[in-house]
Design a protein around this nucleic acid. Structure first.
Lengths: 219, 219
DNA sequence: GTCTATACGGAGATAGAC
DNA sequence: GTCTATCTCCGTATAGAC
């Protein structure tokens, strides 16, 4: 749902504008709301959801303590909007790459490269989603997990297609198992990547594309 | 420091007794302290550090609200002890496996298999460490990160050894890069694994050992 | 839509009896 | 070493003026 409209930008587009575009496409996106949104991503990523106070967020956004509640009904709503935007954008990155023309090997390599680069570049927003699922209401958590499952399904389908066409020779024969491993590589990048890392996100993506082709036994 | 004494149990030993043994070997480990320790692992893993109250922990341990402070000076100290025990045990698992005799390929496969199985089996304790580094004091965080680096170094050395002996043909030529990928596979298991998963932790370990050999280009 | 002031509840930690 | 009672602070959210 909601993933069949806008094509994504490149995997390296700034998250700030990407998130803003997504929100704006959904409805109006006032400047104050946007500033709180971006301030909260940084604060949640640095200190965690509960350790971040609504006062922290408001101060970072240049507002008074009560300023947050003009734009969001609660702190949990802020987390919910951030989580959903982040995971949906990730889904769009995967979808666009998987829809590329070419061999299954080429499409898989492109998808893994873009996903890994994306998770490195936007590690703050991704970590917020990964670390704070338990702080969402049950309904909101379910919503986010469903999108994560959709991303996994994109990888699984690519792997299964390549295996069916004998382009791949899987080691653990199950495409689902292989897809989990590929997704782990990409996701975990958001944990260890740091802007001071010597490889650029693009380079990390290229490295992991090569790793992915080995994992699936591409010939 | 503190990793050169006791050999670890198997990677599938129950975390409860393993953690208890580690703590007991360090000094006395009263029953009340142990109950709080184990209760806090579950609570932190399920709800998060800040969302868990000291009253929650005490109640799970069968104590009154003030009972926690007899055994720990603060809630952060509980998190610190859990994080350190968990990451040190993980280090011991890796160290014991890497010290096995045999080819570099065999040692790498064994290490990855044991690490992945460990992260699946003890996903709760591992997730506490991964998700709550920001809730530790700066000194305590540094302490935990140092052990994580040591684990990474174990993998990196195995990869480098195999490459030097021409047992491996690395795709991203850098052993460090390859080791990061291998560690990501193991670590991320703690994120997605769930007791209802159809593969056992041992099976996951075996699958990832095969994946690891492909990644390093073992012949 | 932004502010200042504040209500309200809850959580970490302590005091002191048993 | 465990309890009950409580202190004290802080964080979310609201009220109401501008």
């Amino acid at each position: 749902m909601g993933n069949d409209d806008k094509p994504p930008g490149t995997a390296t587009a700034a998250l700030a504008s990407a998130l803003a575009n997504l929100e704006r496409s959904q409805r109006r996106f006032p400047e104050g709301r946007r500033r709180i949104f971006l301030a909260a991503i940084d604060a949640f990523a640095e200190r965690g959801f509960h350790a971040t106070t609504t006062r922290d967020i408001a101060a970072r956004a240049g507002l008074s303590p009560a300023g947050l509640y003009v734009h969001f009904g609660s702190k949990e709503e802020v987390l919910h909007r951030i989580s959903l935007s982040s995971v949906r954008l990730t889904q769009q990155v995967a979808q666009a790459a998987a829809a590329t023309s070419g061999s299954a090997a080429h499409r898989l390599a492109t998808t893994v490269a873009n996903l890994a680069a994306w998770h490195a570049e936007h590690n703050a927003a991704v970590r917020v989603v990964l670390h704070h699922l338990t702080d969402l209401t049950p309904d909101h958590r379910t919503e986010v997990l469903a999108v994560q499952d959709a991303i996994h399904a994109i990888l699984r389908d690519l792997v299964a297609t390549g295996a069916d066409q004998d382009e791949f020779a899987l080691a653990p024969a199950d495409p689902t198992t292989t897809a989990i491993a590929l997704y782990s590589l990409c996701v975990d990048t958001a944990r260890w990547y740091h802007p001071a890392h010597h490889r650029t996100p693009e380079r990390i993506g290229a490295d992991y594309a090569a790793v992915a082709l080995r994992i699936v036994g591409a010939v």
